[in-house]
Amino acid sequence: MSVAELEAAEIALEAPAGGLWKEASYRLIRNPAAIAGGVLVLIFVIAAIFAPLIAPYKPLEQNLSLLKSGGIPPGPSLHHLLGVDLLGRDVFTRILYGARFSLLIGVVSVAIGLTVGLILGSIAGYIGGIVESVIMRCMDVMLAIPGLLFAIGIVAMLGPGLYQIMIAVGVVNIPIFARLLRGSVLAQRENDFVLAARSVGVRRRVILFSHILPNAISPVIVQGTLAMATAIIDVAGLGFLGLGPQDPSTPEWGTMLTDVNDYLQAAPFLAIIPGIAIVLSVLGFNLIGDGLREALDPKLRGR
């Protein structure tokens, strides 16, 4: 979470004006790293959406008779491309379905952080004064508690479960987005077009929504992409600590990885496959986020 915040700090506050989007997308397409990231994320999203169509088995279908003596699952084979897990369930199928959960958790938690952060940040940035101080001090307080511990605290409060995890990871993201938005809005507030709009008597709310926010949004997009990456990692971390979904058969990557921690030596592929799935999807979001930042950052232009 702090990483995301740092990344945010790197994002330049000046947003590209109107026509820059075109230029930015052009730059993005020419960035091989961003393309690689795009491909990874695309695979991830396709796997998530079409899991029921692609998957050769059902994610909860057990077949204990496949296990070798001592309950050790056999490795990959033609019937099971990535092997089976400790209950004889097809790992490939579960990885596909796991993508759904990761995507869902990532999107929802980022949406929570973004929406609340957006509202608080733009209010703070635009109104200023005592409101700003109060909001931003609250954000400071939230940032004072290390991210994962904060998430753990929230899960302890709400109980373990899928929705609770989404909320926990989302809440942790709020101050990061709020700070980012406030900074952007502050920078935009003094811009010529805002001053112009104000001088002709456009209402404050209208200025905020139609002039300031659209121009402050590009760092938010970058940050949102990077936050997806950290959300997936944080969820895996919570799963590893035993705070994953209540129903143990849920094919969530972090939980899958935790499960097989004990089997690393007996059946290493079981631990490595969900691990690789996590790393690749997170890497995909990070690469895109990085590419977007470079594309949108005027300071880096021309380098």
Binding site: G71, I72, D262, L264, Q265, A266
Partner: peptide
């Protein structure tokens, strides 16, 4: 796992409560 690994690395010469899946190892 950590207990098994301590046995494997010599950080313990005996361990209790070996998980069934570790017996083969």
């Amino acid at each position: 796992s950590a207990r098994l690994q301590a046995l494997q690395t010599g950080e313990a010469q005996g361990i209790d409560l070996v998980a069934p899946e570790h017996v083969g190892i």
